[in-house]
Design a protein around this nucleic acid. Structure first.
Length: 591
RNA sequence: GGGGUCGUAGUUCAGUUGGUUAGAACGCUGGCCUGUCACGUCAGAGGUCGCGAGUUCGAGUCUCGUCGGCCCCGCCA
């Protein structure tokens, strides 16, 4: 059937080149300005808006029809593009030099008055925007973010395709495995009382694809983790998942650098230097207190344990005696900027991460000002100032505690200071590799070693003899990619030998029998010609968030969930029919 | 599991030491208007003050609980 209103152009693309042409446009009414005689409509589609004019002298019927039009109505219009009179050009619009005089109009759909307009700047509560997500998505920001997200995946796919990768899908209904995050479970109707788990990542499948000789695999894939949400954490999120055979760190880093720089170039038009700098885990921890340092500014941590070891200050002395640390940040030239209140606030930040407090010294022209300086003899203070490079005008802050607390507290105090003092250049892009992670760390609560990365990460060959003697000294062939203080990717060279994998399970307290039940398929596969292999997974949502300049990954996900993991649009999760429950033979409690 | 913060018209907010009829702007509805683009103008409608208890002669306001949004700690190999 012929459609008289077959669209010929996008609204946002009408330009001076179309003057004199007859066009048919389809779109949403953004605003309508009714002058009684003339009616102006801003017609919107994904490419932008164009002003259409209804003049009774051109078409009486269309003008009459237009009286009933309202915001968000979906209409099709036919008309002629004309240049606007010179004094009526609207420089704010891309299409502002032209307008379309309408001679035929069709209402394709009406609209209720929406609870908010996607096209206005008003800051509407996120809960309302999430309930009416389709309205919010009509807005410029989310349209741009979703497009940018697609551009990122498109560029990544192109590069990986060129480098002879194969995109392979792996199961969503898979096996629950120990270690790692809490699983989302799916009951099996055909196998009552048994459950699938949604994948936390396709980790084991991609390793097995290497055993299968695929050589180079990637997948842009949803992953699921049933943990509490944050601004940068959703229960389902997307990874660009990559695995390669016969690969060492240098080749893999090179591929990642090629991909990431291509994304920056093609999506934002920005050249970023490669290769990315490499920072060892232990150096990152020593200098910045965390394994994802924001390198856009300084304020590095300084270990002053030795310099203060002789002083009488009990807090420092006790921490050191208990095997802890005393570390400082010299906040150069900010003795004035950091008020008493600012220092108190900073101490609160430190306390959030377990510190009991935060000591400080301001180096004023007339001498040091500090609640703790009275515990230091002159020469002790000189030694301390020498260690931190303290000069007149500086403010030095200290945390003394167990190494983990010192690191957490100062790392976050550092970030707070960087933001507060305006030290962070928002235009800077600092990408860095973090390498040589510990393979395992001791979990005090569980009284056992747990994998820092995951249990399939290869140890450094030269550290293999430490499995039985000093497990926490074993370095892992794991690496993270960090962008401006955000972990955007992580991976490792994997274990490809059954013996090493078994030693790893043993170290983690996973017995032979349990390993067989949980990971038997992997141990089997490793015995049938597993090549050395390794890979990486990128957090697509985080990358999109950072490139889009969004404040939350919710702003780069079409249909995100709230902090309680609820979708306000669909109201998932929801109760289900008793019939469905019965089919699943779930044991449920009606009380 | 814990801490913080917010919740009043469709939306964004104001609402005094607890006081009688809860306001504004935008939006919405109707009228007028041929050059607007934040159109203008006149008139109008619109409220479970998140919900539930309590204190009080009287609660949007105070107390307790609860629900929900956001941020954070724990958690997230």
């Amino acid at each position: 059937m012929e459609n008289k209103f077959q669209r010929t152009h996008y609204c946002g693309e009408i330009s001076e080149n179309h003057i004199g042409s007859d066009v048919t446009l389809c779109g949403w009414i953004q605003t309508r300005r009714d002058h009684g005689g003339l009616i102006f409509i801003d017609l919107w589609d994904k490419e932008g808006i164009v002003q259409v004019v209804l003049n009774p002298q051109i078409d009486k019927l269309a003008h009459e029809q237009a009286q009933s039009l309202r915001g968000n109505f979906v209409i099709a219009v036919k008309g002629k593009v004309r240049a606007r009179p010179a004094d009526m050009v609207n420089p704010k619009l891309k299409t502002g030099k032209v307008e379309v005089y309408i001679d035929d109009l069709k209402i394709l759909n009406k609209s209720k008055t929406p609870p908010f307009s996607a096209w206005e700047d008003a800051e509407v509560a996120e809960a309302i925007r999430l309930k009416y997500r389709y309205l919010d998505l009509r807005g410029e920001d989310l349209q741009r973010n979703l497009k940018m997200r697609y551009d990122i995946t498109r560029v990544a796919r192109d590069i990986l395709h060129k480098r002879r990768f194969t995109e392979v899908e792996t199961p969503m209904l898979t096996k629950s495995t120990p270690e790692g995050a809490r699983d989302y479970l799916v009951p099996s109707r055909l196998n009552p009382q048994k459950f699938y788990a949604l994948p936390q990542s396709p980790q084991l499948f991609k390793q097995i694809l290497m055993v299968a000789g695929l050589d180079r695999y990637f997948q842009i894939v949803k992953c699921f983790r049933d943990e509490d949400l944050r601004m940068d954490r959703q229960p389902e999120f997307t990874q660009i998942d990559v695995e390669m055979s016969f690969v060492d760190e240098p080749q893999l880093f090179g591929l990642v650098e090629e991909t990431v720089s291509a994304i920056y170039k093609e999506v934002l038009g920005i050249d970023i230097p490669v290769p990315f700098p490499v920072l060892k885990y232990k150096d990152a921890m020593a200098r910045f207190g965390n394994d994802k340092p924001d390198l856009r500014f300084g304020l590095e941590l300084i270990d002053v344990g030795e310099a203060v070891s002789g002083a009488e200050f009990k807090v420092f002395a006790d921490a050191l005696k208990a095997g802890g640390q005393v570390k400082a940040i010299n906040v150069k030239k900010s003795a004035e900027a950091l008020s008493r209140k600012a220092l108190d606030d900073l101490a609160e930040v430190a306390k959030t991460y377990g510190a009991k407090g935060m000591a400080w010294i301001k180096v004023n022209p007339d001498g040091p000002q500090s609640p703790i300086v009275k515990f230091f003899k002159k020469e002790e203070l000189d030694r301390l100032m020498g260690k931190v490079g303290g000069e007149v005008g500086d403010a030095i802050v200290f945390v003394a505690d167990k190494p983990k607390v010192v690191a957490d507290a100062l790392a976050n105090a550092r970030l707070a200071l960087g933001r507060q003092l305006g030290l962070i250049d928002e235009n800077k892009i600092c990408l860095t590799w973090i390498t040589e992670f510990p393979l395992v760390e001791y979990d005090e609560a569980e009284k056992r070693y747990v994998a820092l990365h995951h249990p399939f990460t290869s140890p450094f060959e030269e550290d293999l003899d430490k499995f039985e003697t000093a497990p926490d000294q074993i370095r892992a062939r794991a690496y993270d990619l960090v962008l401006n203080g955000n972990e955007i990717g992580g991976g490792s060279i994997r274990i490809h030998q059954k013996e090493v994998q078994e030693r790893m399970f043993k170290l983690l307290g996973i017995g032979a029998e349990e390993a067989e039940i949980k990971f038997g398929f992997l141990l089997d596969a490793l015995q049938y010609g597993a090549p050395p292999h390794g890979g990486i997974a990128f957090g697509l949502d985080r990358i999109a968030m950072l490139l889009a300049g969004a404040r939350s990954i919710r702003d780069v996900i079409a249909f995100p969930k709230t902090q309680k993991a609820v979708c306000l649009m669909t109201q998932a999760p929801s109760e289900v029919d008793l019939k469905q429950m019965k089919e699943l033979k779930l044991k449920y409690d009606l009380s």
